[in-house]
């Protein structure tokens, strides 16, 4: 039942026939080979594979950081074909939130400023932006840490700030690159719980890249990648998000 609902939900990211060649000359590598992938609103998809399998390359292409050598990507129905670097940046601004393995917070800014920065790059400033940033931090359980700098936060707290930064602009897709890799088990669970909750929200798809089996219970769908090809796709073992959100 839930699988049918996922199939019906609006695709937020769509890749068709992706091939990505990296490097040149003797160092040329086909990092992705004829990949077809769809991330739908309301699902948490888990992309798993060994190192060098093409996970990060696929994430980069889906996140509009790379344009595919062959194939097409569309974000919320907008194709990236022919887009230059600034147009790709605009697509990221408008539709995609990122969470990185090593957080990539700004060490000289407070937690609140780090979150506000995601709005600032979108030209959203002032009281409304601050209020949204505070709200995002509250949502990830950091109501007491607005003024803390990254150095004053634990790894789990830093990743939660990064999640708040990713969601503060209300993107259609959230892409997370091994978000729990640098965290202990408890913090990893906490981060994945937040991400799965975010995925419940309508019109938002969450794609998590990782290779930790402990991520699997949170996924609606698990996709395996090896040697640049998607080799397997199955339902996750976690509770269906759309059903929890009242979809069925």
């Amino acid at each position: 039942m839930s699988r049918n609902l996922y199939a019906m939900a609006q695709p937020v990211l769509e890749a068709k026939g992706l091939t990505q060649v990296l490097g040149s000359g003797a160092a040329k590598v086909r990092a992705l080979k004829d990949v077809n992938f769809t991330l739908r609103a309301g699902e948490l998809a888990l992309l798993m594979g060994p190192s060098g399998s093409g996970k990060t390359t696929l994430l980069s292409v889906l996140g509009c950081m790379l344009t595919p050598t062959v194939g097409a990507v569309s974000v919320c129905g907008k194709s990236t074909a022919g887009a230059d670097a600034e147009e790709l940046a605009r697509l990221r601004r408008e539709h995609v939130g990122f969470i990185f393995q090593s957080y990539h917070l700004f060490s000289t800014l407070t937690a609140l400023e780090n979150v506000q920065l995601a709005l600032d790059v979108r030209g959203r400033r002032g009281n409304d932006a601050e209020s949204r940033a505070r709200h995002a931090l509250v949502r990830v359980g950091l109501a007491e840490k607005f003024a803390a700098t990254p150095r004053e936060l634990s790894g789990g707290e830093q990743q939660r700030v990064a999640i708040a930064r990713a969601i503060v602009s209300d993107p259609s897709a959230v892409l997370a690159d091994e978000p729990t890799a640098a965290l202990d088990g408890e913090n990893g669970q906490s981060v994945m719980t937040i991400l799965s909750t975010l995925a419940k929200e309508a019109k938002r798809g969450v794609l998590v890249v990782g290779h930790d089996p402990r991520l699997m219970p949170f996924a609606d769908r698990i996709i395996s990648i090896a040697d640049g090809r998607l080799v397997d796709e199955r339902s996750g073992t976690g509770p269906p998000r759309l059903r929890a959100a009242g979809g069925s």
Binding site: R92, R93, E94, F98, F100, H104, F106, L117, V121
Partner: peptide
């Protein structure tokens, strides 16, 4: 440079 790359990844324009 990592911070500037992060800004770029977050979708900031070059002008920003």
């Amino acid at each position: 440079i990592d911070e500037f790359a992060t800004l770029r990844a977050l979708g900031s324009s070059n002008a920003y």
